[in-house]
Design a protein around this nucleic acid. Structure first.
Length: 479
RNA sequence: CGGGGUGUAGCGCAGUUUGGUAGCGCGCUUGCUUCGGGAGCAAGAGGCCGGGAGUUCGAGUCUCCCCACUCCGACCA
């Protein structure tokens, strides 16, 4: 909040240096720690707990829709990776290779999975014979490795955690429906659980997944105006099935190729949370995934009855919420700052004066508003506060995106608005020609993020070449 | 992968120009006093100066080679 005094001095302000602000939060809020291997980070308990909560919610959604979890190996033989031409071309530049087992050189080198399409395909070829074997709705929670050149905590690490869904269906229609369904699951998760507004859309040909027929994505806008892809869902058609020889016998007794999808979300979401909701005092966590939803800070805890009351409240609340009572011997002021930095949505202060009056103080993280509430209906008061936090951070994020979404009809307009207002989402028309896509990127610095489902006819001409436009594209500088 | 910057105690830094055997602040430990927005005093602990080779009687400091972090590009969840 602009008028609030900055109370945590350890974090660089985002106006001063956004990149440093980001890494400061990652480290000071104890989300990650670097290791001696470039791009490989320790996700510390507080950061991992966020991921576990993300997993819990998503996994339940997947299972509700009939998906089953499986686990593929970590290694892919080179020959297997190479079966689908586009796929290998897309991933080969960034795979890590295992060449030795012990001291012996392997006959065929193995890549550490950058994604598992090939492994799923090999497996599907083995287990699918009949239409009765379809569909298979699989998902796995694993880590993958991509040998990135520049790395940043959560946003781009060489090893990252994710889930990858891989489904295989008898018909194209079914597979397309699955692709769309999962994109919607992702969008709903971002918006309803993480309070991150997203734009749903389709990737352009040049930007789609290696080996896919079509790629869909959700794009979120960060505080600094850069776009972040928060999730993707791909439709593969029968290309992989053909490359890997997956066939099934239909009811009509004909051999057919099945149709596939894949979709994924990663620990990058934690980066999205930081850069969507965080402020100069640190993290601001969406209540649904916050490891601690309510932190209880006893005041004058050495005085008789204070800790006992605080513990009583903790115990009472812990059946409904993730609660922590901090009874360490730090001063209350220190604790306020500490848990603000860690983004805990609601703080509960309780001291001798409160106890006497049968009340406590609730403070919401995103706006630091204090409310005195009676201890008699504490649970509902907290539910209200958590809902307030959700609504508050959602509105703020939507507002930011609104302020940073620009409609442009010419290249000069794009350059001008970016120079004046800073990075953001640029909506502009496109003719569909890849040359124009490249030229926009080259001249203005913003690349195509997606072709939003929510189309708007901004003009009838391509922003670049002036020829008749096919669709509106959302352009942005991206992470 | 190209161009810049940085690696000295857990964190932030000084010391490097001019080689002489390592310091400051915060944090940490113990004790007492404090406690409603990062408390005070006192006494302590903590370093193969990112790693390796070299020059030198002697290297945090000079030379070379690695590695990591970071920023700006290109590539990417």
């Amino acid at each position: 909040m602009a008028d609030q005094k900055k109370m945590v001095e350890e974090i660089t302000s985002m106006e001063e240096d956004f990149a440093k602000w980001y890494t400061d939060i990652c480290k000071k809020a104890e989300l990650v720690e670097y290791t001696s291997v470039k791009g490989c980070m320790v996700i510390r308990p507080y950061g991992y707990a966020i991921w576990e909560n993300i997993q819990k919610i998503l996994d339940a959604k997947f299972k509700e829709l009939g998906h089953e979890n499986v686990c593929m190996p970590m290694f892919i033989p080179e020959s297997l990776l190479q079966k689908e031409k586009d796929h290998v071309e897309g991933f080969a530049p960034e795979v890590a290779w295992v060449t030795h087992g012990g001291s012996e050189k392997l006959e065929e080198r193995l890549c550490v999975r950058p994604t598992s399409e090939t492994l799923f395909c090999e497996h599907y070829a083995n287990i699918i014979q009949s239409h009765r074997d379809l569909p298979k709705l699989y998902n796995q929670w694993v880590s993958v490795v991509r040998w990135e050149k520049t790395t940043r905590p959560f946003l781009r690490s060489r090893e990252f955690l994710w889930q990858e869904g891989h489904t295989i269906h008898a018909t194209a229609e079914e597979a397309i429906a699955e692709t769309e369904q999962m994109l919607n699951v992702y969008a709903d998760f971002c918006e309803q659980n993480l309070q991150i507004p997203v734009v749903k859309g389709q990737k352009t040909e040049s930007d789609k997944f290696a080996g896919a027929v079509s790629t869909y994505a959700i794009e979120a806008l960060m505080h600094d105006g850069k776009a972040l892809q928060a999730g993707t869902s791909h439709y593969f058609g029968d290309g992989f099935a053909k490359a890997f020889g997956i066939q099934y016998q239909s009811k009509e007794n004909k051999l057919e190729y099945p149709h596939q999808t894949s979709w994924g979300m990663t620990t990058r979401l934690i980066g999205a949370i930081i850069m969507t909701h965080g402020d100069n005092n640190g993290l601001v966590l969406p209540p649904d995934v916050a490891p601690i939803q309510v932190v209880i800070i006893p005041v004058a805890q050495h005085k008789e009855g204070v800790l006992e009351k605080a513990e009583e409240i903790r115990s009472q609340l812990s059946s409904s919420y993730r609660v922590k009572l901090d009874d360490s011997d730090q001063s209350p002021g220190w604790k306020y700052s500490e848990y603000e930095m860690k983004g805990v949505p609601v703080r509960l202060e309780i001291g001798p004066r409160d106890i006497e009056a049968g009340q406590c103080v609730l403070v919401t993280r995103h706006n630091r508003e204090k409310t005195v509430v009676s201890l008699d209906n504490l649970e509902s008061a907290i539910a209200e506060k958590l809902a307030e936090v959700k609504a508050g951070i959602w509105e703020k994020a939507v507002e930011n995106r609104k302020n940073r979404t620009y409609k442009c009809t010419t290249m000069d307009e794009i350059k001008q608005v970016l120079a004046e207002k800073g990075d953001g989402f640029v909506e502009a028309m496109w003719c569909g020609d890849e040359a124009c896509e490249d030229k926009v990127k080259e001249e203005t610095g913003v690349g195509s993020r997606c072709i939003p489902f929510a189309q708007e006819q901004i003009s009838d001409k391509c922003v670049c070449c002036g020829k008749p436009a096919k669709c509106m594209v959302m352009w942005a500088n991206a992470y």
